[in-house]
Design a protein around this nucleic acid. Structure first.
Lengths: 114, 114
DNA sequence: CCAATGATTCTATAATTATCGAAATATAGG
DNA sequence: CCTATATTTCGATAATTATAGAATCATTGG
């Protein structure tokens, strides 16, 4: 995952409704959720939800598929893992690392930058 | 780390100059770097750099200390780990997880939310 | 083909964020 | 005390992002 893409991903998540939407999608799992269901769950107008979902999709964090009239969104775990890898590799910069939680230093490059 | 704080941290990192500054600080380690040195390293005017550093500080990602005339910034690894923990815990939502890289599921709460 | 449903795109507007020169503030040294 | 250095704050402006109603597009069922 390269710089610009990381910035887009971080920016996509750095917004109340989008972070909430993403969390909702993670919770929903592979089945995903329809745009309308998300809008209702978050209490956001459909057009606004669409705007936010487009940003998440543009950042590659979610994928969409049409199912009849609905468009189903689901979280792309690969993209999130790539983002986490980038952060992990760049939050300790070769130096020591606080060991406990995140920052477990995956070698150098994520194998899959979606 | 709570929602609003996560959003501020993500937003702080979701910008070219700030991500670059943070990376630079991580690389610099505990010694940190002076504001002016960062500005020069990134090729950004001092006042702009100050603006960005203020955002990183507001998000708790960096700390500052005065050393004579200079103000030295350094990365706060605790905050980054808290952010990573939040993401880790919320990118797999109790469901299964792709195992390999990030997402190694630290129990439930980070002990230190700076 | 027509009406109904689900979603996006358009459009306008508001709000936030970024940029950067100039002025102000703090520290050090002579 | 005065000057130089390091940084921040101010102020004005540009650019980006968010909001939401209205219009449009796609799909389904009768």
């Amino acid at each position: 995952m390269d710089g610009p893409k990381v910035i887009r991903a971080l920016g996509a998540l750095a917004q109340e409704h989008r972070l909430a939407a993403y969390r909702q999608l993670v919770q929903a799992g592979p089945d995903g959720m329809a745009a309308g269901a998300l809008a209702e769950a978050l209490g956001v107008p459909a057009s606004s939800m669409s705007f936010h979902l487009a940003q998440l999709a543009n950042a590659g964090l979610v994928v969409q598929r049409r199912q009849s009239r609905s468009i189903i969104y689901s979280a792309d775990y690969g993209a999130m893992n790539a983002l986490m890898s980038y952060m992990t590799e760049n939050c300790c910069g070769g130096a020591q690392c606080s060991s406990g939680s995140a920052c477990d230093s995956t070698p150098t490059e994520a194998k899959d930058a979606a």
